[in-house]
């Protein structure tokens, strides 16, 4: 009798085990390691194609872009946008499409949850892996941008951190989508209706001020706008105080999406 009372009391404590998160992360790492050569095409080669075409191709046709008074070459302007936008794609894809496959198609979540891993830990493991992938691609494309002279300031190292935070935020968002999507068909909307517009209209390829006046506030509300803004400032070394708002947005959105994703997964799976 005493024994079962003790266990009951135990359950009320906040029950979170880091090893659950690590276990899920290691699962992803194991799968990644098995096919890393192919993974590299998505992490490095594809984004480099985009960056090269836009920076050195279109960039030659476009003059300088005005940012906060100074003009910078278009190639320098666009590089941080593509780096961070790409980080978004990776986290979003991993945590929506990838997660949905694990959740619904292959039913791996059922197996993971039958082991002593809680939903909170599983979700954090998924999002952490999304952030890890975002970091990998950020590092790879940033390295290319540095080598090709598109990065002007040593502050650019900080973009790695922005890549992680971007991955965490969009990982959480992707996982929410996976948790509520009835089918892969519906999940496609995450890419067509969320990923693509964000990628193009978040100040990535052109300054938000270029947009019609009434769209501007919408663009400011978009989640990708903020990491792009910070990354651009870091790449050019032009840092200013209001960037902290963007950082706050990034962190808060990430911290908000994660528990929502956990809740929705619980509702879907633990019935």
């Amino acid at each position: 009798m005493n024994e079962s009372l003790a266990v009951r009391r135990d359950a009320r404590r906040f029950d979170f085990r880091l090893r659950g998160v690590v276990g899920v992360w290691l699962r992803h790492y194991t799968a990644f390691k098995g096919g890393w050569m192919i993974e590299m095409t998505g992490i490095l080669i594809e984004p480099v194609f985009i960056l090269a075409a836009v920076a050195f191709g279109i960039g030659e046709l476009v003059g300088d872009v005005e940012t906060r008074g100074d003009g910078v070459k278009y190639a320098v302007f666009v590089a941080p946008g593509i780096v961070v936008g790409n980080a978004m794609w990776h986290a979003l894809f991993e945590c929506s499409w990838g997660a949905f496959r694990r959740l619904q198609t292959n039913r791996i979540y059922d197996s993971i949850l039958a082991a002593p891993v809680s939903m909170r830990e599983l979700a954090l493991g998924e999002i952490s892996w999304g952030a890890t992938r975002a970091l990998m691609t950020t590092a790879a494309v940033l390295a290319f941008a540095s080598v090709t002279g598109l990065v002007e300031s040593p502050w650019a190292v900080g973009i790695l951190g922005i890549g992680i935070l971007t991955g965490f935020m969009f990982g959480g968002f992707g996982l929410i989508a996976a948790a509520i999507a009835p089918s892969t068909h519906m999940l496609t909307l995450v890419f067509t209706m969320v990923g693509t517009p964000l990628f193009f209209f978040s100040g990535t390829f052109f300054p938000i001020s270029t947009l019609p006046r009434w769209i501007e506030p919408i663009a400011w509300a978009l989640p990708l706008t903020h990491p792009v803004r910070i990354a651009r400032a870091l790449a050019t070394g032009d840092l200013y105080l209001s960037l902290l708002w963007s950082l706050l947005y990034l962190v808060v959105a990430g911290l908000l999406f994660y528990p929502i994703a956990t809740h929705l997964l619980r509702r879907r799976l633990l019935i």
């Binding site: 659950g20 690590v22 276990g23 899920v24 290691l26 699962r27 194991t30 799968a31 098995g34 292959n106 039913r107 791996i108 059922d110 197996s111 993971i112 039958a114 082991a115 002593p116 891993v117």
Partner: peptide, 19 residues
């Protein structure tokens, strides 16, 4: 609920990680 993204052996190893 087996994991098709990893090998047979890794299915067991990774399950150990969950524990």
């Amino acid at each position: 609920g087996l994991d098709p993204d990893i090998s047979v052996r890794d299915n067991l190893t990774v399950y150990g990680f969950y524990f």
